[in-house]
Design a protein around this nucleic acid. Structure first.
Lengths: 132, 132
DNA sequence: CTGGTTGCAAAAGTTTTGCAACGAG
DNA sequence: CTCGTTGCAAAACTTTTGCAACCAG
């Protein structure tokens, strides 16, 4: 097994993600990291995002079409994507969490190790605009 | 609105998908279509898969990392992906369907127009191999 | 004819990787 | 010193698109 070594870049990337509630793409992370490390490369960002996801410190979301998104919130939770503006938001609901837990438990032999759910629709901001 | 015209290629693509229970990628569809239309192009496959998805005749699944997958089953349903062999299978469970419906209903203002859920774990085939 | 569809190829977009230099332990 | 990490660039992979020829209605 590879022994992990400290890297400023990796630390900054994780810190950056932790400070946000949206779900940035790798390229967006890259653009922001450039302000701290002008020479950082996109490859480094991808490598660290992958590594952090493997360690379970962040979550990779491959669910929305286009580039993958990354989320520092690692507890199982759902996402809502607005089909009009493309924004991806976390969904908070005990009802939802309980339902998904019971869904996972519904599988035979405890096969489920993880699950993700996402919902599509039009967000309130877009609905507001629509009524103008 | 564009008026749809008949195309043998589109018909074959849809027929191909309908006859399968796995969830092929565009490239896999392309490789198989070549046996019927040796000159068919990947662009045509992508265009028709997109078109069929827009028409609601098939479903595009962007949820599993790597290339998108396509599914002729259009009723809302969940998928299970084996994290070991990568296979993607449909999940049948009244319990799950009811839970997801009630999740969607939990949103205010009927915002939800669609939802997808997927579960990860190790499939029975892989578990069997593991015990050797 | 008209305009949707196709094959082809180029381009765009996303992610991975080989490699030499660098740096943490 | 060792080996994980970085920057850079090339490559791999996935999807979209411009265009002239083609074909369904």
């Amino acid at each position: 097994m590879a022994t992990l070594k400290y890297s400023r870049q990796r630390e900054s990337i994780k810190e950056f993600l932790t400070g946000r509630t949206d779900h940035p793409t790798a390229d967006f992370v890259y653009e922001n990291m450039k302000q701290i490390y002008p020479n950082i490369s996109l490859g480094t960002v991808y490598r660290n995002l992958s590594l952090l996801a493997d360690l379970g410190e962040i979550q990779k979301l491959s669910s929305f079409g286009g580039a993958d998104r990354f989320d520092a919130r690692t507890v199982p939770h759902c996402h809502f994507m607005c089909t009009r503006c493309g924004r991806v938001m976390d969904v908070f609901s005990e009802h939802i969490d309980k339902s998904l837990e019971s869904i996972a438990a519904d599988f035979k032999d405890g096969q489920i190790s993880d699950y993700k759910a996402r919902f599509f629709g039009i967000c309130k901001e877009c609905l507001k605009e629509e009524s103008h």
